[in-house]
Amino acid sequence: MLAYLKLHMKQLITVTMDIILGILALLMVISMIRQLFVLGGHVLSANHELSFATTIRGSLSFFMYFEFTMMIRKYIDEDHHIPIRYLVYIAITAILRQEMVIHDDAVQTLILSVSIFLLVLTLIALQFSEYRIPFLNHRHEADEIKRK
C-alpha cells in the first residue's frame, strides 16, 4: 500500500511539474514573440539613433527566452532530467553572449575565452567518458530497452 501511495504521489508531482513547466514555456514563447516585435520595431523605425548596444541587448534577450524555452523542452523530452552536456552548451552560449556585450576590456575577454576553452575541454572529457565509463553506457542500454 505504501509503495502504491509513493508511486501515485510521484506521478502526481511529475504531472504537476509538467503542467507548470508547460505554462512557463508558453509564457516564455509569448515573451519571445513580444521581444521579436520590439526588436523588429527598433530596426524598422525611421529613428536612426538606434544604438548597436540596444540592438544587441534586444537580440540577446530574445535568445535567452529561446534558450530557456528549449531547456524546458529538453527537460521534458529527456524524462525529467537535463544532460550535463546540454548544460555545458548553455554555459558556453551564456559566456559568448557576455563576451559580445563586454568586449572592450582585454583581461575580461581573456578570462571569458579561457572559460570557454575549459568548457570545451569538459565537452571532450564527457564525450570520451561515454565510451570509457561502463555505467554511462549501461544507462543508454537501459533507455533503449525501455523504448522497445
Score class of each variant (00 low, 15 high):
1 M>R: 03
1 M>Y: 07
1 M>T: 07
3 A>P: 07
3 A>S: 10
6 K>W: 07
7 L>C: 08
8 H>W: 14
9 M>H: 14
9 M>L: 15
11 Q>C: 08
11 Q>F: 11
13 I>L: 08
13 I>R: 02
14 T>G: 05
15 V>W: 07
15 V>E: 04
16 T>H: 04
16 T>Q: 05
16 T>W: 03
18 D>Y: 06
19 I>L: 01
20 I>R: 00
20 I>D: 00
20 I>F: 05
20 I>S: 01
23 I>S: 01
24 L>D: 03
24 L>F: 12
25 A>K: 03
26 L>V: 10
26 L>G: 09
27 L>W: 05
28 M>D: 01
30 I>P: 02
31 S>R: 07
31 S>M: 13
31 S>F: 10
31 S>K: 07
32 M>Y: 00
32 M>G: 03
33 I>V: 02
34 R>Y: 12
35 Q>C: 01
36 L>G: 06
38 V>H: 10
38 V>E: 11
39 L>N: 00
40 G>I: 06
40 G>E: 05
42 H>I: 03
43 V>N: 04
44 L>D: 05
45 S>E: 08
48 H>L: 08
48 H>D: 12
49 E>V: 02
49 E>M: 03
49 E>G: 03
52 F>A: 07
53 A>T: 14
53 A>F: 11
54 T>N: 04
55 T>Y: 15
55 T>L: 15
56 I>T: 13
57 R>D: 09
58 G>S: 05
59 S>P: 05
60 L>P: 01
63 F>D: 07
64 M>H: 00
65 Y>K: 06
67 E>I: 00
67 E>W: 01
68 F>L: 12
70 M>G: 03
71 M>S: 05
74 K>Q: 13
75 Y>I: 10
77 D>P: 08
77 D>R: 15
78 E>P: 03
79 D>R: 13
81 H>S: 09
82 I>E: 01
83 P>F: 10
84 I>V: 15
85 R>P: 04
85 R>A: 10
87 L>M: 12
87 L>A: 08
87 L>C: 12
90 I>Q: 00
90 I>V: 09
91 A>L: 11
94 A>P: 02
94 A>W: 03
94 A>T: 07
98 Q>N: 11
100 M>C: 12
102 I>K: 09
104 D>E: 09
104 D>M: 11
105 D>W: 06
105 D>S: 08
107 V>K: 08
108 Q>S: 15
108 Q>M: 14
109 T>I: 13
109 T>C: 06
109 T>A: 08
110 L>N: 10
110 L>G: 11
111 I>R: 06
112 L>A: 13
112 L>W: 12
113 S>D: 11
114 V>D: 05
115 S>R: 02
116 I>A: 04
116 I>Y: 03
117 F>L: 09
117 F>S: 08
119 L>N: 02
120 V>R: 00
120 V>N: 00
122 T>N: 02
122 T>Y: 01
123 L>F: 00
124 I>V: 15
125 A>R: 02
128 F>M: 09
130 E>V: 06
130 E>P: 04
133 I>R: 03
135 F>N: 10
136 L>V: 14
136 L>W: 11
136 L>A: 09
137 N>V: 09
137 N>A: 14
139 R>H: 13
140 H>P: 06
141 E>N: 13
141 E>T: 15
145 I>V: 15
145 I>F: 14
146 K>F: 12
147 R>D: 11
147 R>S: 12
148 K>I: 13
